[in-house]
């Protein structure tokens, strides 16, 4: 079942095009990794998918009962959040605010669902703790629990392992994989190609050349090797 279908999409800011002619689709249960060099337009693509900015051309359509506001988004951390006085519960619950519309307070069902998502992320011992006192990995789990409150179907992760140490990174990938195994569709932006090749079912490569297809096709297409070589060359220099 197709959830998101992008046709001939071009994106950018104020009429300056960052990426064009992108076509891909995301089906229920997929694990799509978006890879590409820094500045290739991955974040712009995410913002366009979320409706935070308008596409410059082409179309994005949502189907299979998914609405644009039902995407569980895991953004990169902002400066404001690092020093924010808020408990884990408060942050996780805020995932429901969008769905509540004009209703001012949370329902009992939402509170129960938030508790469930907190347990799902293994945070039950931290519920009263302050967000700014948590480790980077714990903070990411809190934001992931919040994303799960906003969606049942699809999560969209923007570099979920940025700034985490290798052990925590592996744990994070494991959690995401488990969610995917439970039937939640995953779109993940990453510059970590090794992880993308290990966990993803599909790859969208953006940049000078665009590739979309299954992971197996990506590996055999030669795109992957060129990208790896390119990133090695740039990191060596």
């Amino acid at each position: 079942m197709t959830l998101i279908k992008c046709t001939d999409l071009s994106i950018g800011y104020d009429n300056s095009v960052v990426l064009e002619a992108i076509s891909f689709e995301v089906c229920s249960g997929d694990y799509l990794c978006v890879v590409g060099e820094n500045g290739a337009g991955k974040s712009t693509l995410i913002r366009t998918l979320l409706g935070l900015q308008k596409p410059l051309g082409g179309s994005i359509s949502f189907s299979g009962g998914l609405r644009q506001t039902e995407i569980g988004y895991l953004p990169q951390q902002t400066v404001v959040q690092r020093d924010f006085p808020a408990s884990v519960t408060e942050i996780v619950m805020s995932g429901f605010v969008g769905a509540n519309g004009r209703r001012p307070f949370y329902t009992r069902g939402q509170k129960a669902k938030a508790r469930m998502n907190i347990e799902r992320m293994g945070l039950q011992n931290l519920v009263r703790r302050c967000y700014r006192e948590l480790s980077g990995g714990q903070q990411q789990r809190v934001l992931l629990a919040r994303a799960l409150c906003a969606t049942d179907k699809l999560i969209l992760l923007d570099e979920p392992t940025a700034g985490l140490d290798p052990r925590v990174t592996a744990g994070m990938y494991q959690v995401i994989k488990e969610l995917n195994d439970e039937g939640i569709t995953v779109i993940m932006i990453s510059h970590d190609l090794t992880a993308a090749l290990e966990y993803a079912s599909h790859i969208l490569h953006v940049g000078r050349e665009t590739f979309f297809g299954s992971k197996e096709d990506y590996v055999s297409s030669g795109f992957c090797e060129r990208f790896l070589k390119g990133s090695k060359a740039s990191s060596a220099s």
Partner: peptide
């Protein structure tokens, strides 16, 4: 929600 994370809030409607 808007104070903690405006992008997330916007994205969820």
């Amino acid at each position: 929600a808007v104070t903690f994370d405006e992008s997330f809030a916007r994205a969820t409607g």
